[in-house]
Simulated assay, not measured.
Amino acid sequence: MPPVNAAMRCANFEERRDRAMALFAEKGFGQVSMRELAAHVGLTAGSLYHHFPSKQDLLYDLIEELYEELQATLDLGRRAMARGGSALSCLIAAHWQLHAERPLQFRLAERDFCCLSEAQQAHLMLLRRRYETGVLHLIAPRASLKGEALAATAHVLATLLNQLPGLLQARRLPEGEGLGLMESLLLGGIERTLR
């Protein structure tokens, strides 16, 4: 039998992660046993434990990956600004695309975050706050609010960027119309809140 190359192993692992994510999204994280998860992804329980010590670690990995992707959208916004473009338009388009590619990860991050350990939640909250701060600095760099009001504004803006694409895509809005509506909603909120 020929040896399995690293690219094939990586592809198989990614496919299994996607199947695990789909099962968590369909049934709910708390309703899936490790044995059921292993059978669903085509592994023995022992093999699954080789990759992840617990299903909680797998969920954490999926949500952490999403936050890394969200952080990468900020780099796109910075590059758009450096070219003289709109950071907001770039962020909206990047979030729309990310939601189209990873809707299940967004669902898990919102619904099953509470299933993680306190340490895992604390680390993800740090990633979330860093992302929220980055969003605010990009799209409202001269915000006049201070303290908790500023932090709350950053949270709301990031939440809108993360949830509007899913809501609008579920309504089957064409991409151009959805992007335009997102921009109008976010601009309206920014203008009123950050004057």
Rank of each mutant, 00 (worst) to 15 (best):
A149F: 08
M125C: 08
F52Q: 13
L127S: 10
Q121K: 15
E69C: 05
V32Y: 00
C114G: 09
L185W: 12
V32K: 02
A140Y: 07
T133W: 12
E64I: 03
L167F: 01
Y67M: 09
R102D: 01
G77F: 15
E69M: 06
C10W: 06
L164C: 03
A170T: 05
S54K: 09
L127E: 06
I63D: 02
L167K: 08
L74I: 14
H99C: 00
R35G: 14
E191L: 15
P2Y: 11
L43G: 09
M8R: 13
P165G: 02
I190W: 05
S86V: 13
G188M: 11
A158V: 02
R192G: 13
A140R: 06
E14Q: 08
L161F: 00
Y67H: 06
S47E: 08
R102G: 00
E64D: 12
E64S: 07
G176E: 14
Y49M: 09
P53C: 06
L62Y: 01
D18S: 12
A152L: 08
S33K: 06
R172D: 10
H40Y: 09
S47Y: 03
H137D: 14
T153P: 04
L194P: 00
F29N: 06
R129I: 13
R142A: 13
H123T: 08
A6G: 06
E175R: 11
N12L: 14
R129L: 10
A154Q: 02
L91M: 15
Q120F: 04
I190L: 15
Y67K: 04
A122S: 10
R107Q: 01
I190V: 15
L136F: 08
E65L: 02
R171L: 13
L62A: 02
T73L: 01
G178W: 02
P2T: 14
E118Y: 10
A143Q: 09
G178P: 00
R192F: 12
L59S: 04
V156T: 11
A6E: 12
P53D: 05
L126G: 07
A11G: 08
H99A: 00
V135N: 03
G84W: 14
S144R: 13
F24W: 07
L164P: 01
S47W: 03
E65P: 03
Q121P: 03
L150H: 12
I63G: 00
E65V: 02
L186A: 04
L181W: 05
G180H: 11
G147S: 08
L59R: 01
L48G: 05
E132F: 05
R79A: 15
G46E: 10
R9E: 14
V135P: 01
Q31R: 10
Y60H: 12
E191Q: 15
C115S: 13
I92C: 04
L108M: 13
A140H: 07
L179N: 06
L98R: 02
E101F: 07
K55M: 03
Q121N: 14
A140F: 11
S144Q: 15
K55S: 08
L157K: 01
A152N: 08
A39Y: 04
L126D: 10
